[in-house]
Structure formats: C-alpha cells, structure tokens
Design a protein around this nucleic acid. Structure first.
Lengths: 262, 262
DNA sequence: CTCGCCCACTTGTCTAGATATCTAAAGGAG
DNA sequence: CTCCTTTAGATATCTAGACAAGTGGGCGAG
C-alpha cells in the first residue's frame, strides 16, 4: 500500500465485481472528480500493481476498459493520460446556405473561420468510378458511372473528416467539378452555374465505431466513434445531383439542426 | 494446423504487426467477406489457440479488438458471435410536425408504427429539480427550478433510448405535463393548448462512447456508441419552453434531416 | 559544450498456466 | 415422462513472468 499521489482505495477480491472493474471504477471516479486533470498522467502500471497487490494484466485490463470508454489514452513508453477534448467543430444546418457560397467560401472554410481554427484539405482525389448500388439508388437509380471526389479535412493539423462526393457523369464530366480545385464556393456553386439550382439537402446520420482504415485516416484514438453522414443534394427539378458520404471524428464535432414545428 | 471450418490462414510471428492483430485482421476479413454470417459463432478460443499455435491470451486479445470495433459479441459459456444489427429506427426531421400531434400520437409511437415494431415506455419519473447551469442557459438563463420528465423507450422489448425533458415550472407546474401520462399528442400538444404555439426546434447531436450507467440502462453491447441529442423547443414568442436530452443506442438509429438550400 | 550511448522507466506483446462461472446437453432418479 | 445432477465445453478472471520497444534523462567521450 504505497502512498499514491491520488490515494486510491483498495479492492475487494471476494466481491462479485471483478477486480479489474473495481480498479477501473476507482480510476474513472477519480478522473470524473477531477483528481486527475485533463492531460494528466495516471499512475503507472507498476505503481498500481503495487498499490492494489494485483497482477500487471489485471491493471492493464482496467486501463483497456477506460480506453474503450474514451476516457484515457495510452502512450507507449510514456504513460497513460486522461484524454483531452479537442476543439469541436459546430456544423450548423445553414452551412450550405446560398449566402455563404456567394461569398466564395466553401462550407468547411466558413465553419473553420467561425471556430477560429486553421483549416487544411488534403488527399484530394478526383476520378471516375462505377457507382455502387447504394450510390446509384440515392442518385435516382439509373446512374451507372459517377465522378468521385475524395478529400480529407484537417483542423489545426489534425484530421477530422473524410468526405467522398459522387456526381452523375452527365452533370460533372468536363466541368470545373472534375478538376481538383473546383473554384470559389465549391462544387455547389458550380452546380448552380450549370443550371442545377439547389432546392434542398437530405442528410442521414449514423454513429458507429471506426473501421481500421478510418482509424488510420482520421488518426483516431481508441474509444472515439465516428459520425457517418450521407448527404444527398437535390435541384429544383427534384433530381439528385450529388451524394456526399462523410466520416467524421465524433470527438471533434457537434451537429446542429433547426426544425420547423409545422 | 487443424481443419477449421473457415480455413483461416497462418500468422507471421516475425512480422511488425502484432500476432493478435494479424488474427483479428483475418477474422475481420472473414466476417466482412461473409465467411461468418450475422449471428454465427466464431471458432472457440481453444480452437484458435490450436489453429494458430499461440497462447490463449493472444486469441482473447484479438477477440477484444473485434468487440471494441462492434463487430462481435462474446457470450459467457456459449461463444463469440458475429453481431447482428438490430432493426433501426429512422428519425425523420418532420417527426414533430403538428399534423402528427393532431392525430393524438406521440413522436415515438408514430415512428414505431412506421417501422413495424412494438413500442414500450418505462421508468417514467416526473419531479421538480434544480436546473443545472447548462439547462438553465438553454431555457433562457433565468430559470432556476424545472419540471423533469424521465423515460426510457423500448422497441420490441429492447431499450433503445433514454430521454429527459426539462420544462420551466411557470409553464408546466400544475398542468397535465406534470402528470406521468400527459395525454394524447404528448407534452408538445399540451404546450400548444397552454398557449405556447411551437415555432421551431434546435437539435444538437454528438456521438460518444457510453458511460457505465448508459451501458446498463440501454443494455448496450461493447463497441456500440451512443448518439446524444439535445433538443430545445421554442414557441412563437421566441421563448425556450422545453429542453429534451436524449441518449440513443447508436446501432438502433438513423437520424434524417432535410435542409433547405436557401 | 555537444553528441552519442546507456540506463531506468514506461507501455506493448506473449506465454503457460490456474480457477471460476455460465450454458447446454446427456444421463440418472423418481 | 419430468426433474435434477453431472459433465463437457465455453468464456471470464487472474497470476507470474519474460522479452520487446518507445521515451527521456544522465553521463562520458570527444
């Protein structure tokens, strides 16, 4: 029973609750109560082994619980730290409003400015592909090949969002939309110039754990889910002119919508 | 190298990638390819130990990775199974439309009917409490005490959502809203009868891993995040008349919004 | 003083067990 | 036939230790 800086309690080996859960409970509560501040290092495995008189695997099991809950982050060779919350991006439902496009800014830049962060876009890829069944359905059902635009957004150097846009070839081929940089106001501005006046967007939102690919692309810590948003843009002719599939680091986003009560 | 039903490959102990990751990769790919169907049992730990020639902890480590990704679910004494996706509830942005209230149905029942499931509401609790700073701010800043309505929603017997509504006392006290069953059309219908004609709702959406309490309340499997939705209802006088804090099992929901392009 | 090596400390990975508990099916008592 | 017990097989928990690998500070060579 060494004197740990936080003076954690003891565990009851005869309890129904597994020892590693009891240890996790105590650490969780200490974090919640602020005994360990954001970014602060927790006691090392060796210290907890000695304090609780348990095996190292038991302590590691506790840490892995807390990691799964997104409470802590382990750094090889350094220690286990209380996770810090990154600055969040607030996505308002008016982010695609025409008035923003007319100022020549893309939705991402508008948001980043508001949040005061430093925005970047990378891994830009533009090409033609065969549409999946799902994308084809969302685009109206008769679309076979599509123009695909992939890009990753970073805020203050940290990747936060990975987006893929799909557009019917008869609309996008040979236009500025098929170029890496579509120009001021983004592809929505170009669509309107091409005569597709936008009417509304449908957004579908899911949340789930990331795939290993997404963990790499978004550099996600364990215990951080992703928000999966699929947006379909419709023009005033009721035609679906774009599907945008977006995967966002859930700890970096708050989505915000306004619904009429009528 | 026993003949496993799925004939998984071998691992390379000299590889940079940890053995338990390689095993997890192979199982993940087998699941993705449909070699193991939804709900199907994976090979037991003992079988994989023999197949790969590794220790049991290594296999368990692989399983725990897949569990964290929400891909599989372990059942004590039975085995490890590919997770089945529950029926999802699609929450449309018109779910609070007046026309639904006027039919005397609450939003949850309207949705459940559409999905063909069997809806239930339980752990109903109605009482007065001191407002937290956050709730007070959302209700306009000057509210000290609030009426609190807590309830849990179940679909086909499975808990899917836990919601807490906060209403200013000067609006709700002594009305039908303060009773466990607020009557046809729910509390929004009562608010309108009380002269608070609803104008719009603001919704804030986050996704994160559940707290231990939420895991219990929603009976969440590991690797399932929650969607945290905070809705504020405004009447035509621009007054916030209700804040509803909702935690949903993310694997049971798809949220859907329609945004005007203007 | 600076650079590079070494060392202490940390987490990551893996082994080889032991015991507990849960499940489901088989078998025996009534 | 029904009900209880047994048993095999499954996961859950825990121990004790080993080696690998990343981090950062100290120290000695130059």
């Amino acid at each position: 029973m060494t004197a740990l800086p936080s003076s954690l309690g003891a565990v009851d080996p005869t309890s129904d609750r597994a020892v590693f859960r009891q240890i996790a409970d105590q650490l969780r509560e200490a974090i919640d109560r602020g005994r360990f501040a954001e970014g602060e290092k927790l006691p090392s495995e060796a210290e907890l082994v000695e304090h609780y008189g348990v095996s190292r695997m038991t302590v590691r099991n506790s840490f892995s619980m807390l990691q799964g809950e997104g409470l802590v982050r382990a750094e090889h060779g350094k220690g286990v730290f209380v996770r810090t919350r990154p600055p969040v991006r607030r996505l308002a439902s008016d982010r695609f409003a025409r008035r923003h496009r007319e100022q020549g800014k893309s939705a991402f830049l508008v948001e980043a400015d508001a949040a005061g962060g430093y925005p970047q876009v990378d891994s830009l890829e533009v090409k033609e592909e065969k549409a999946t069944r799902d994308i084809s359905t969302r685009l109206g059902g008769s679309v076979r090949r599509v123009l695909v635009r992939r890009r990753r957004y970073l805020l203050d150097g940290r990747p936060v969002e990975f987006a893929t846009s799909y557009l019917p070839l008869d609309i996008a081929r040979g236009t500025r939309i098929a170029e890496p940089n579509p120009g001021p106001g983004g592809i929505y501005a170009r669509l309107e110039e091409l005569g597709h006046r936008l009417d509304h967007f449908d957004e579908e939102i899911r949340a789930r754990m990331p795939t290993p690919t997404e963990v790499k692309t978004l550099q996600l810590a364990s215990g951080v889910p992703v928000i999966h948003l699929i947006r379909t843009a419709y023009d005033t002719e009721k035609r679906a002119v774009e599907v945008c599939d977006t995967v966002m680091a859930a700890d970096a986003y708050v989505l915000s919508y306004r619904l009429p009560a009528t």
